[in-house]
Design a protein around this nucleic acid. Structure first.
Length: 481
RNA sequence: GGCCCCAUCGUCUAGUGGCCUAGGACGUCGGGUUUUCAUCCCGAAAAUCGAGGGUUCGACUCCCUCUGGGGUCACCA
């Protein structure tokens, strides 16, 4: 039994797509489950869509998500190169072999010719398909055209009526008749292979044992199987994963969803939370757990538990998952480390260990840190109305502040402890028979400038005596104005 | 449209012929804790298991048809 080897084969056409991460995650898990290798191959054969730097964005995204590969275009490996643009010779050789064996043929039709042909076919309500006009070119004619340097592609000669089947690890038995298939272009006129040739040649060369990819590839799998047969190569196992969906159930797309992995990183999602969430799409833990580590995923993972239906990517559940990771999975140290890149420049870093515990349960994303803590280091604008809760008069509000100030002033810096101050202030409030809600709200707004804050006295403790009293006096001034 | 894939609460899912008067999670709603918000705790609503036929003593589970959704039909992957 050979070593399990899986791969993802992204195209560097722009963003690092969440769907790529999804495929990577399951390929990675399957490989590691079986003690195998997970590799990243770059399929950059479409020079029109090639985007400079896109490749690195993909690696960065995968490393961020902690889905590392052991072989790839960035780190090399025993089957280098891992970039298709650097493997052109192999495709040329393979295509030539197919031509020699009669499984492929030269085609000199240009784009206009093919367009016209398709238009006609559609007008006749036929399925658009190459009509094989170049298949019947004589050997001499082909030779002459090639000698003339005429642009050409190499097409696969599909069998007319052959049933191709395979046992999909996720779908089970699947069969497709070759009569449904077109004479697929294998080599483009620019000398680059199409996906179909490239993927088969490379997966074979790189000894890929399990092709785990999106459902969108099901209908072209017969082409690949045929190619393996023509080359006389051993077939890999195929597993076609469900496709991530938009809320309207269509294939997850940029238009209807945030599909860029860096987007989630920048928005303050925890890599492991996103990973954990992705695990739950199309797969479920045998014990119905929601929260589990990557390692646990690997050991619990089996293809049998894969769902065939495309799951909708639900940001609401991701948000819950992220909050869950922030408050329960990450240690305080880990959280503070994750928070670093989300702290505004005026954030007092030395206070981080005191501030974070106060807002931990309130963070949904790491980026929430600023809006949740700004009053610690910024004097927020105060209005008179904000200081006066419902059913409270200006005079009462003033008294609230006056009493709070009196109480707090009794505490020295060294006795500036939340619980003690709270007791004293609350007692003062109760002694006067005031409504606690109103009283504390005025106090809260006076101290922070906000109606929603962490526990008031913990906040006051972190703020310190000087700042707290200064703000309360300022609030007093506003009420007096 | 042809072909292919799929079909359990709004969403993610459990369920592999009887344990299901269908379980969990998110979200929603209500309640509790609380000086705010959040957390936490408790509870509720929420799927006649897409529909109709079979098979079976018995179907969410097996088969067929229909319907619905998705994918794919490029010198893009």
């Amino acid at each position: 039994m050979s070593i399990v080897r899986t791969r993802i084969a992204p195209s560097p056409t722009g963003i690092a797509h969440i769907g790529t991460a999804y495929m990577a995650l399951f390929n990675y898990a399957f490989a590691h489950k079986h003690g195998g290798e997970f590799i990243v191959r770059i399929e950059d054969t479409d020079r029109k869509r090639f985007v400079e730097g896109a490749e690195q964005v993909i690696y960065d995204a995968l490393y961020w998500l902690n889905i590392p590969h052991t072989e790839g275009a960035d780190i090399g490996g025993p089957y280098s190169p891992y970039r298709q643009s650097e493997r052109l010779r192999m495709y040329t050789k393979a295509a030539q072999e197919l031509v020699d064996k009669g499984h492929a043929y030269y085609c000199f039709c240009d784009a206009q010719t093919l367009d016209a042909m398709r238009t006609e076919q559609q007008a006749r309500k036929e399925i658009p398909r190459y009509d094989r006009r170049c298949l019947h070119l004589s050997a001499q004619e082909i030779e002459r055209k090639l000698a003339n340097g005429e642009p050409h592609v190499i097409r696969m000669k599909m069998p007319d009526n052959e049933i191709i089947s395979w046992n999909d690890l996720i779908r089970g038995f699947v069969e497709i008749n070759t009569k449904e298939l077109d004479d697929q272009v294998l080599m483009k006129s620019d000398g680059f292979p199409t996906y179909h040739l490239g993927v088969v040649v490379d997966d074979h060369d790189m000894k890929i044992t399990h092709v785990i990819r999106g459902e969108e590839w099901i209908s072209s799998t017969p082409k690949h199987i045929l190619l393996y047969q023509y080359f006389g190569w051993e077939l890999p196992q195929f597993a076609h994963m469900p496709l991530l969906r938009n809320p309207d159930k269509t294939k997850m797309s940029k238009r209807k969803n945030d599909v860029s992995i860096p987007f989630y990183k920048e928005k303050g999602y925890i890599a492991d939370a996103l990973r954990n969430y992705l695990c739950l799409l199309g797969w479920s833990h045998p014990q119905e757990k929601d929260i589990f580590s990557l390692d646990e995923f690997i050991s619990a993972f089996t293809m049998e538990r894969m769902q065939k239906t495309g799951p909708v990517f639900d940001i609401a559940k991701l948000n819950w998952m992220n909050g869950k990771y922030i408050r329960e999975v990450l240690t305080m140290d880990e959280l503070m480390r994750e928070l670093q890149s989300f702290l505004p420049s005026d954030f007092p870093k030395e206070l981080l260990p005191q501030i974070v515990p106060l807002v931990r349960d309130r963070l949904v994303t790491l980026a929430d840190i600023e809006s949740l803590t700004d009053f610690f280091y910024r004097n927020l604008p105060l209005t008179k109305e904000a200081l006066i809760p419902k059913k409270t008069t200006v005079e009462e509000a003033k008294q609230f502040l006056q009493v709070a100030i009196e109480q707090l002033e009794k505490f020295d810096e060294k006795d500036w402890v939340a619980t003690d101050m709270e007791t004293a202030v609350r007692n003062a409030c109760d002694a006067r028979g005031w409504n606690r809600g109103a009283f504390f709200m005025t106090l809260r707004v006076g101290v922070t400038g906000k109606t929603v804050t962490p526990p008031l006295f913990d906040t006051i403790q972190v703020l310190g005596k000087e700042k707290t009293l200064k703000r309360l006096h300022h609030a007093m001034g506003i009420l007096a104005a």
